[in-house]
Amino acid sequence: MEEKNTVNTQHQAAIDELEKNQVILTPGQLVMRRFFRNKLAVIGVCILVFMILFCFIGPLFYPYSETELFYINEETGEQIRMYETEKLKTAILYTRAPMSAEHWLGTDDMGYDVLARLMYGGQISLMVGFVVVIVEMLIGVTLGGVAGYYGGKIDMIIMRLVEIFVSIPFIPLMLIISSLLISMKISPSVKIYYTMFIMGVIYWAGVARMIRGNILSLREMEYMQAAEAAGIRTSRKIFRHLVPNVMPLIIVMATMDLGGVILMESTMSYLGIGVSAPFASWGNMVSAVTNDAIMRNFLNIWVPPGLCILLTVLAFNFVGDGLRDAFDPRMKR
C-alpha cells in the first residue's frame, strides 16, 4: 500500500509540474482571445479603424476644407478657388462637378468638394455618436445602478422616470427643439452640441433599465452574499464586485448604441433638424437625394455618405455582437 501511494504522489507531482507551467489567462485576456477569433468582429474593428483614420487624419492630407466653395470660368473651363478673388468676377459656382483628379468625388449641389465634406461630416457623425453615448451612459449607468442596488422607493421613482422618458416621441420633440434653437438665433456650430446633449438626455432611459436589471441579478449572486457575509464595505462591494461584472454589459451596450446614435443623427440631419449648413454630416449629405436630378444622375454626391453610414453602423454592430459573444460564450448558438 505504501508503495502504491508513492506512485500516486508521483503522478500528482507530474500533474503539478504540468499545471504550474500552464499559461494563466485572466478573464480579460480570454475575452480578447474569443473576440479576435470572431471574423466578423475583426472586420468591424478594421472598418472602424479605417473610418476614424479617414475622418480625423484624412483632412490633414487633403487640400480642401469643408466650407470651401469652388468656382469655374464658364468660357475657359478654368477652375477657380475661393481665394483667387480677381478671377472670381467672371466665374460661376462649380456645382455638380464630375469625379476628376482635382475633385475625387466631384462637387455637390452647392459647389463644395464631396470628399472633403465626407471627411468632416464623418468627424461630426462619429463625434455625435461618442458624445451622446458617453452622456447617456453616464446618466443611465448611475441612475440604473442606484435603482438596482438600493431598490425600494428610489428604484420605484427612477423606474417611473424611465417610463416617462421612453414614452417621449423623439422626432417631434427634436423638431420643436430645433425650431426653438433657430428662433433663438443660435449658430449652427453651437447647435450641434445642444443636439448631442439633448439626445443623450433622452436616450439614458433604455440604458438605465438594462443596467438595473443586470445589477438586480448580480446582487442575488452568491458571491455578493458571500461578500456581505464577510463584512466587506459597501464601496468595495460596488467597485470591486459589481462594477467589473456590469462592465461587459456597459461595453456591449455602448458599442451597439454608437451605431444607433449615428443612424439617428443621420436621420435628423436628413430631416434638417440636426447638423445644418454650412457644416457637413453624413446625414445632411445624403439629403441631396431629395433632388430628383441628383438622385438619378449624380450618384457621386449621395452614395458615398450613404455607404459610410451603412458601413459604420454595420461595423459597430459587428463589434458589439462580437464583444457580447466574447464576454458570454453561452449566448452563442
Partner: peptide, 22 residues
C-alpha cells in the same frame, strides 16, 4: 460588520459563489 468574521457561510452552488473577475 465587525462581527462578520466570526460567522461565515458556504453556499451550495460553487459556480455562482465566486466572483468570476477576481
Amino acid at each position: 460588520r465587525k462581527m462578520r468574521p466570526e460567522m461565515q457561510i458556504i453556499f451550495q452552488d460553487p459556480y455562482s459563489s465566486l466572483d468570476p473577475r477576481m
